[in-house]
């Protein structure tokens, strides 16, 4: 499933995030289970007018966010920023998580309806 997130969470510049996510375990029945917070990122691209230095290292952050659960995206982002020694302005793990949570809540509500 593909999620397109757009927003300006507190402490962040405008963020646009594309997330492809999948259930953590393959379902032998072949039917895709409904989206839930335990789904994991298979691909992510984060765009926007934020700053992250060195810029080139941001690609590695995106690559290494693949496999993160949707609920731990923000925390994983912050850990990677620290591990790779990036300095960011206008983007935070908290902001990223808040955008993701909002999108999940919207989609979950839509599925229930």
């Amino acid at each position: 499933m593909k999620l397109e997130l757009l927003g300006k969470p507190e402490g962040c510049k405008l963020l646009r995030v594309t997330i492809e996510a999948a259930p953590p375990h393959s379902d032998t029945s072949g039917a895709e289970p409904p989206l839930s917070p335990v789904w994991r990122v298979t691909h992510i691209q984060i765009r926007g007018d934020f700053f992250a230095i060195p810029e080139e290292a941001f690609d590695e952050i995106e690559q290494r966010l693949a496999s993160a659960a949707l609920t731990e995206l923000g925390q994983r982002f912050d850990s990677l920023v620290q591990e790779l020694g990036l300095e960011c302005a206008g983007i935070t793990g908290t902001g990223l998580q808040s955008l993701t949570d909002e999108a999940l809540a919207r989609l979950t509500a839509a599925i229930k309806e």
Binding site: R16, I46, D49, A52, E55, F58
Partner: peptide, 9 residues
């Protein structure tokens, strides 16, 4: 455009 922006967006 900024380094992290999507051109067509």
């Amino acid at each position: 455009i900024g380094y992290f922006q999507g051109l067509d967006e």
